[in-house]
C-alpha cells in the first residue's frame, strides 16, 4: 500500500491486513485440505475400499464451519465499525471540491472562514494541506459522476451530480501524494489527476498567502474574473 500521510488511515490498513490474513489462512487451509482429499481419493481408487463418515458427522462439521465463519464475520464487522472515522471535528479545515470532466477544482474559505466571499482561494488540480490538521471536504460534480480518491490519505468520496459527497481525515505527516478519479467519467477519465501535498504549517501559510496575493492582484486587474462556483458549506 502507498505510504499513509493521515492519522486515521492505519486503522483501515490494520483491518485490511487482518481481513486479508484471515482470507489467506482460510484459503490456504481449504486448498491444502482439498489437495490432501484428492490425493487420498485418487490413491483409494487403486488400492483401498472407499469409506465415509456418518451424515451427522458432516452436518456437525458444516455447523461448526458456519459457526466459525459467523464469528469471523462478527469480528470483522466490529473491526469495521471501530475503524470508521465518525463525523469530522468542528475545527477541521474546510475545503470544497468541484469535480468536472476532467479536472478537480478546490476552494478554501480564506481568512473570513466563509465560502462564497471575495477572499475565497481557488486552485486547479492542486490540493495543499497543513500537517497535523483535520480536513473536511465536500465534493460536488458539475457534469457526471466522479470518484474522489486520495490513496495516501485513505480518503474517498464518490460524487453524483446534484448531491454533495463528504469525506474527512487528519493529516499526520508531511509528504506528497496524488488524487485520482475512480469512477469512469468519459474518455479522459485517466487524466483526471491532481497533486496533493501535506506541508508544514509555515510552508502552507506561505503558499496560501502567495495565492491570496495573486488572486487580489488578478481581481484588481480584471474585476469579476474570480471563478464563479462554490456553495455555502453544508452543516
Amino acid at each position: 500500500m502507498p505510504p499513509d500521510l493521515s492519522s486515521e488511515g492505519h486503522r483501515i490498513d490494520a483491518l485490511l491486513r487482518v481481513s486479508l490474513g484471515l482470507t489467506a489462512a482460510l484459503a490456504a487451509f481449504f486448498l491444502l485440505s482439498l489437495a490432501w482429499l484428492v490425493y487420498r481419493a485418487r490413491k483409494r481408487a487403486s488400492d483401498a475400499a472407499p469409506s465415509s463418515s456418518a451424515p451427522s458427522a458432516y452436518a456437525f462439521g458444516l455447523g461448526l464451519a458456519v459457526l466459525v465463519f459467523g464469528l469471523i464475520d462478527l469480528a470483522l464487522a466490529a473491526g469495521s465499525r471501530r475503524a470508521a472515522v465518525g463525523p469530522p471535528p468542528p475545527d477541521a479545515l474546510r475545503v470544497e471540491v468541484l469535480a468536472q470532466q476532467w479536472a478537480w477544482r478546490f476552494r478554501y474559505a480564506g481568512p473570513d472562514d466563509r465560502f462564497g466571499t471575495a477572499d475565497d482561494v481557488t486552485t486547479l488540480n492542486d490540493l495543499r494541506l497543513p500537517v497535523g490538521r483535520a480536513v473536511s471536504m465536500q465534493v460536488r460534480s458539475l457534469d457526471t459522476s466522479h470518484g474522489f480518491f486520495i490513496p495516501m490519505l485513505r480518503a474517498r468520496a464518490d460524487t453524483y451530480p446534484g448531491r454533495t459527497a463528504r469525506t474527512w481525515f487528519r493529516t499526520a505527516r508531511e509528504g506528497r501524494g496524488e488524487l485520482a478519479c475512480t469512477v469512469l467519467c468519459g474518455d479522459a477519465h485517466y487524466q483526471m489527476r491532481g497533486e496533493v501535498a501535506v506541508l508544514s504549517n509555515e510552508q502552507y501559510a506561505q503558499w496560501m498567502n502567495g495565492l491570496m496575493e495573486d488572486q487580489r492582484r488578478a481581481a484588481a486587474a480584471a474585476p469579476g474574473s474570480a471563478p464563479a462556483w462554490g456553495w455555502s458549506w453544508l452543516p
Binding site: 485440505s33 463418515s53 458444516l62 464451519a65
Partner: peptide, 26 residues
C-alpha cells in the same frame, strides 16, 4: 453481505464431505 458467507460455507462443506473417504476416478 457478510451473512452470505454462511450459506456459501455449505457448498464448500458439501464438496469436502463428498470427497472425504471417497475413491476418485477422475
Amino acid at each position: 453481505t457478510l451473512l452470505i458467507s454462511l450459506p456459501s460455507t455449505a457448498f464448500v462443506a458439501s464438496w469436502v464431505a463428498t470427497l472425504h473417504g471417497a475413491s476418485l476416478r477422475p
